[in-house]
Simulated assay, not measured.
Amino acid sequence: MTSTSHDPGSRDRDTGRDETPEERADRRWGELLQELRVAQTGVQILFGFLLAVVFQPRFAELSDTDRAIYVVTVMLGSATAAALIGPVSYHRLVTGRRLKPQTVTWASRLTVLGLVLLLCTMCSTLLLILRVAVHNSLALWLVVGMALWFLACWFVFPALALARSSREAEK
């Protein structure tokens, strides 16, 4: 995604904006930070809940399978937090070195990875909770249904919007 030229007043093909690559990187960074704030808050609340579960009296009653699901869920939650907090660290360590466009690219990749990990964390959390709540195979089917809904909301709907936009741009 490059602009038509490097003149400060050039019109960017991809955004329809008059901005330099640096201005575009600044704008994209600001947008990414807003997205990360939403995701990070949810992850931190979920992760805090997961950390507290092990100290509840009923934790001792969990089956070996449920304990394994719990451990996987906590590890996924940790990986999710790392991926979604990673862009902030990345930016802080390279700031002032004229790497903003590259920083935005890598931060975007970490954010998408964080969303995939969040999907896995949410499904694993749901599986654990529903196994304890319903005590049967219905839990797995409920999680599969919810995973499909997450996939649709987070990835399929945006992909469809991109495909539609591309078709309209070709006309």
Rank of each mutant, 00 (worst) to 15 (best):
M1A: 15
S3Q: 11
D7Q: 13
S10W: 06
R13F: 14
R13P: 09
R13H: 14
G16H: 05
G16I: 01
D18L: 14
E19C: 05
T20L: 11
P21M: 09
E22G: 06
R24Q: 14
D26C: 08
G30F: 11
G30K: 14
E31Y: 12
L32Y: 09
L32A: 09
V38G: 13
V38N: 07
A39T: 12
Q40L: 15
G42D: 07
Q44P: 04
Q44A: 05
I45P: 00
G48C: 02
G48H: 12
G48P: 04
F49M: 09
L50K: 07
L51H: 07
A52P: 05
A52C: 00
R58F: 11
R58G: 11
R58V: 03
R58K: 05
F59H: 07
F59L: 00
S63Y: 07
S63D: 05
T65Y: 13
D66H: 06
D66V: 01
I69Y: 02
Y70G: 02
V72W: 06
T73L: 02
T73V: 00
T73D: 01
M75Y: 10
L76Q: 06
G77N: 05
G77T: 03
A81S: 15
A82Y: 12
A83M: 09
L84K: 02
I85F: 15
I85W: 15
V88P: 02
S89W: 15
H91M: 09
L93N: 08
V94G: 06
V94W: 14
G96L: 06
G96Q: 07
R97T: 06
R98W: 09
R98C: 03
L99R: 15
P101R: 08
P101W: 03
Q102P: 01
T103V: 02
T103W: 00
A107M: 08
A107E: 12
R109I: 10
L110N: 08
T111S: 15
L113F: 06
G114D: 03
V116Q: 05
L118I: 00
L119P: 01
T121R: 04
T121H: 10
L128S: 02
I129W: 11
I129R: 11
V132R: 12
V132F: 03
N136F: 02
V144D: 01
M146T: 04
A147S: 10
W149I: 08
L151T: 11
L151S: 08
C153F: 13
F155W: 14
F155A: 04
A161S: 08
A163D: 08
R164Y: 12
